[in-house]
Design a binder for these strands. Structure first.
Lengths: 332, 332
DNA sequence: GACAGCAGAGAAAACGGTTGCTCATGAAGA
DNA sequence: TCTTCATGAGCAACCGTTTTCTCTGCTGTC
């Protein structure tokens, strides 16, 4: 059996209160010698305070929940890594939940996080416009910052300027003379898809180019989806000479399809992805992309959440990062 | 303030004990009508039992720790995903720790997991032969299963037959007539590197081919490392016609270097990686690889750990999976 | 010499649950 | 009618902490 604070107290011939003070570095009111004595015993017995018992009284678990749609998209591991790292620096441990893109699973996970009394949650929702998770979190008063995908504006959030990123990418294509620019979207309802689409649309409209619905498709954030979307699009609309993809994976899938169809990149067709994940560097040809500063965003999300938890930041602050257009081998 | 069990009891005009019985489905000893009444109140108030308080008395947190070296290598996200999914099915939530390949960070993480009273830990250690983490876990009696990388045999483990996988890969090269086969290793001390190397060595020796130290290098499990290792090797030993890489990322890096040197693959040089991660499918050319059944391994690791936690499985069971040689575009 | 003030430490009440034990009640069996 | 027993429910102790309040001496000041 692991020793408890009472054991330490008994052996050191002091009260639990004194031991507690020593443990928590609130040593005012404890003489140096008793302190030393207690520390020695703690060390000898390998005593570890029971954080559960502690949490229950101080009403704080030093634990965060991180809820993401899908670890399979390399964007998220990178984000997760940054978040965990920063959280740990701040003394927090994080529960990771991978929802497999399913909003119901997400809702279940969130409930279990609330039951586990996490101090806060970082959420990249799998849901579209409305989400049971956000309702639960709000109802139980759990601090939350939405990341990447943002639903409503009632919670804090950290995101990229999706519209601007896609606007610039599309604008670039227009400047290069393209007139038939395809849009390969993620899931239709997801906020990132919607915002990125609006950048695409706005750029076209700003140049007086008609938005052709025929060139717009939706799928999900995966290579195979990119493949499929590109396949149907290119067979029906061989006039396409440029492609805006909603993420790098989609772009990779699209490139593969194009190459298979004997279309050379970037000569006959240019393509720009989104995210700037590592695979997009490695893939041949190197994917041109709208890059997100993933690490900084991760860091900022944690700082923001902890700020909210500790009450130093208001709970509806929105942080928007600037995307950078990174042109490589799939553009001229 | 969230309602507590006492609130429910007071409102329902029963004792805490009765409410507790209802919550825990130990309804023998509770009449149907009081049960219904209590459930109704619980529902109306949105009462959620405080799992911390519960854990402290039943001495069980329904929480697992998952410690990995680096989420950046796509092998791990896939593993993590499988583990989280399965754990969740079994009613467990998991703390994820990414150690950034640093054994000291790992040791810290493990200590904090122990403090948080996880029921068990799944560990893919960043360390070489000895690890502070394992010592701590053992000392505090926390059930653990090592996964992927296995140090010592004192704990349960789930792993692939590394030696066999590399033996077969090397054997294949030998059969194809190669005599100058390079070995691109991961970190020198890591168990997977060591075991995979022994497969390579044994295959050579079994065929009476001299093991040439000049063709053996070590680095880490990354694309850039693969690049570097291949670069130095190929400049010194242009006679190399086949390469055994310790993981797919290394293989990808190596392929990139070879292509840059104008060496065609697989015609002038064949290469086989290890793991069978998704990028290796996507990369062009598609990497031939020794495939691990990652999802099954993840599942098995969780089942094993929970078995140990609940006492139905002995704590030193070792599970070894069979690798499959998946030959694609980097081999003839 | 009286007294204020402070440092060091303990007692005990929380925190929100679980659980062993006891007890009252009413039905069944002799 | 009396005993037995099962059922439904409460009491209170306990899990391992923190924290407020109180108490005891001792030091320093006037």
């Amino acid at each position: 059996m692991r020793p408890t604070i009472s054991d330490i107290a008994r052996i050191a011939n002091v009260s639990k209160a004194t031991v507690s003070r020593v443990i928590n570095h609130k040593s005012q009111g404890v003489s140096t010698e008793t302190k030393e004595r207690i520390l020695k015993i703690i060390d000898e017995l390998g005593y570890l305070p029971n954080t559960l018992a502690r949490s229950i009284v101080v009403d704080e678990t030093k634990t965060l929940g991180l809820v993401i749609p899908d670890l399979t998209n390399p964007f998220f591991p990178q984000m997760v890594r940054g978040i965990i790292q920063r959280a740990s620096q701040e003394g927090y441990t994080v529960f990771l939940c991978d929802c497999g893109n399913d909003p119901e699973t997400e809702a279940k996970y969130v409930m279990s996080l609330i039951e586990k009394r996490v101090d806060g949650v970082i959420l990249a929702s799998s849901a579209d416009c409305k989400t049971a998770s956000m309702d639960s979190l709000k109802h139980y008063g759990v601090p939350v910052v939405q990341v990447d995908r943002v639903i409503g504006d009632s919670s804090a959030s950290v995101a990229i300027d999706n519209r601007k990123g896609m606007f610039e990418a599309t604008q670039r294509f227009i400047q290069m003379g393209h007139r038939h620019i395809a849009f390969l979207g993620g899931p239709k309802g997801v906020s990132t898809t919607i915002q990125r689409f609006s950048g695409y649309r706005d750029a076209l409209e700003a140049s007086g180019i008609e938005v052709n619905k025929e060139l717009i498709t939706y799928g999900d954030f995966s290579i195979s989806s990119g493949r499929e979307m590109m396949k149907t699009l290119i067979s029906r609309h061989p006039e396409i000479t440029a492609v805006i993809a909603c993420c790098d994976l989609i772009a990779i899938g699209a490139v593969k399809t194009l190459i298979r169809h004997g279309i050379s990149i970037p000569d006959q067709c240019e393509i720009i992805g989104f995210d700037g994940i590592e695979v997009s560097d490695v893939f041949d040809p190197c994917i041109s992309t709208v890059r997100q500063p993933i690490d900084e965003m991760a860091e900022e999300a944690v700082k923001l959440l902890i700020g909210i938890v500790t009450g130093t930041i208001s709970s509806n602050r929105h942080i928007i990062f600037e995307p950078t257009l990174d042109l490589r081998k799939t553009t001229k």
